Computed example of a mutant assay.
Amino acid sequence: MKEFSWDLLDIGIGILILFVILLAGYGIFSLLTKFKDNQEIARGNEAAGMYMGSKMLGLCIIVSMVSFSSHSWISMLIWSAVGIAALCIVYIVFDLVTPKTKLGDEIAKGNMAVAQLLRGIVIGVSLVIGTFLM
């Protein structure tokens, strides 16, 4: 019974850490965009919702891979922060290498094609980053 209690405690701590990481990631990702994510999502901008959802999914992928290989909660937090930073860098670099298409402007306009492109990039890069961090 003791082992079961410790497993439940670990799950609870892991979920709490996941929420902290997701909230931090959401806030940091929102700072990178030129539009207000919350407002766009609230007004029904599907492209903004898809893009933010993709970033959250990508972050969950990174956290899952990091948690699999981490031996402490602190290590998990640190490597997850590295994952957030890596996703931010990927967004900035991709925005720089596509000067004819301003990604943030297109998402704010509701351009689903750009949102789907970014979704693929974010999820793919998250899998690679997560693998690097394992």
Rank of each mutant, 00 (worst) to 15 (best):
residue 5 S to L: 14
residue 7 D to L: 05
residue 8 L to A: 14
residue 9 L to E: 15
residue 9 L to Y: 08
residue 11 I to K: 11
residue 13 I to A: 14
residue 15 I to L: 02
residue 16 L to M: 07
residue 16 L to Q: 10
residue 17 I to D: 08
residue 19 F to K: 13
residue 20 V to N: 09
residue 23 L to V: 11
residue 24 A to C: 10
residue 24 A to S: 14
residue 25 G to N: 03
residue 26 Y to K: 00
residue 26 Y to N: 07
residue 29 F to G: 07
residue 31 L to Q: 10
residue 31 L to M: 13
residue 33 T to Y: 00
residue 33 T to S: 12
residue 33 T to P: 09
residue 34 K to Q: 14
residue 36 K to C: 13
residue 37 D to W: 00
residue 37 D to Q: 04
residue 38 N to Y: 08
residue 38 N to I: 11
residue 39 Q to I: 14
residue 41 I to Y: 02
residue 41 I to M: 06
residue 44 G to A: 06
residue 45 N to Y: 03
residue 49 G to A: 04
residue 50 M to K: 00
residue 52 M to Y: 00
residue 52 M to W: 06
residue 53 G to W: 01
residue 54 S to R: 04
residue 54 S to Y: 01
residue 56 M to C: 10
residue 57 L to V: 14
residue 57 L to Q: 05
residue 57 L to K: 04
residue 60 C to E: 05
residue 61 I to F: 02
residue 62 I to A: 06
residue 63 V to W: 09
residue 63 V to A: 13
residue 64 S to F: 09
residue 64 S to I: 09
residue 65 M to Q: 11
residue 65 M to V: 04
residue 65 M to W: 05
residue 66 V to S: 03
residue 68 F to L: 12
residue 75 S to T: 15
residue 75 S to M: 00
residue 77 L to H: 05
residue 77 L to N: 03
residue 78 I to F: 10
residue 80 S to N: 12
residue 80 S to G: 10
residue 80 S to I: 02
residue 82 V to F: 01
